[in-house]
């Protein structure tokens, strides 16, 4: 690790203000950032720890939705009675991230702000049509994830919470990378009041939806309805663990299983 200045601000404004230094880095759970720093693959001038900011953790029920603070850890989402009741598939998904010690540190805000192409949360946020709250505004899930490790967040913008609407049926199916435990392919299917949404992580540069499957599932919410819908492998990720062709195939398989698991 290179040396840096460590700050632990106690107000959002202070934290956001420090981001005027473009080489400052926010650290939430640190589950991606700290390993990167250990490998000397980044050299931030300042590390701004969000851990002492008030009001960023916790899970609250808000009418027909659940609001999860940006610094809420995966383990808390996984065990939350509220999440289990309102969006049970999200609680289950949180239990599939990393490993137990990672889930005890990693946060929802950190995960979605990082937008790793194989992270689990982006699929949940998009499929569940969540809304991302920042210190400046609210951003719809469909507008939030913009590309490989890229989001709509502007400099100085910090995720404060994510609001998930109550969902009728949803399920997340993850096909793990046997080494890293990231998703080779993860498919989150949700049937909400706003329609059926199918969001895929791991397969592309960033989370994406599958309109053909959504249409077919809107007509008939059965696994059979999408069994013959293949997504093109053009542009999908390819690495030593899985080719683009295999990933494309897995999207259909995982989507089918997610629908079947919705019961």
């Amino acid at each position: 690790m290179y040396e840096f200045d460590y700050h632990r601000p106690t107000s959002l404004d202070d934290a956001a203000g420090r981001l005027s230094d473009e080489d400052a880095k926010l650290v939430a759970g640190g589950m991606t950032l700290i390993p990167t720093l250990k490998l000397r693959l980044a050299k931030p001038t300042q590390l701004i720890d969000l851990g002492a900011l008030p009001g960023l953790t916790g899970i609250t029920e808000d009418g027909d939705s659940v609001v999860i603070g940006g610094m809420t850890r995966h383990a808390d989402v996984n065990r939350s009675e509220v999440v289990k009741r309102v969006v049970p598939a999200l609680a289950a998904m949180a239990g599939l991230i990393g490993d137990p010690a990672v889930r005890n540190r990693g946060t929802i805000g950190g995960s979605i702000a990082n937008n790793d192409p194989a992270a689990d949360y982006p699929a949940g946020v998009v499929a569940l049509n969540a809304t991302v709250r920042t210190n400046k505004r609210e951003i719809a899930a469909d507008d939030f994830f913009t590309g490989l490790f890229e989001t709509a967040l502007e400099p100085g913008e910090i995720v404060t919470a994510v609001r998930f609407p109550k969902v009728a049926m949803a399920n997340y199916q993850k096909f793990r990378n046997p080494a890293s435990r990231y998703a080779i392919v993860g498919v989150f299917v949700a049937r909400t009041s706003a329609g059926v949404r199918v969001a895929v992580t791991g397969a592309g540069a960033s989370v994406f939806r599958v309109p053909a499957m959504e249409a077919a599932l809107t007509a008939s919410f059965t696994a059979d309805a999408i069994k013959d819908i293949a997504i093109p492998d053009d542009g999908l990720n390819s690495d030593i663990h899985a080719s683009a062709e295999y990933r494309a195939h897995l999207v259909t398989v995982m989507a089918r299983r997610a629908v079947a698991a919705c019961g």
């Binding site: 490998l39 693959l41 192409p117 990378n177 390819s238 690495d239 030593i240």
Partner: peptide, 17 residues
């Protein structure tokens, strides 16, 4: 080097980007 050793899963997507 280290980018290949640690981040092989991202090489393809990054080059494409």
């Amino acid at each position: 080097g280290k980018l290949a050793q640690i981040g092989s899963r991202l090489i393809d997507a990054t080059a494409r980007k």
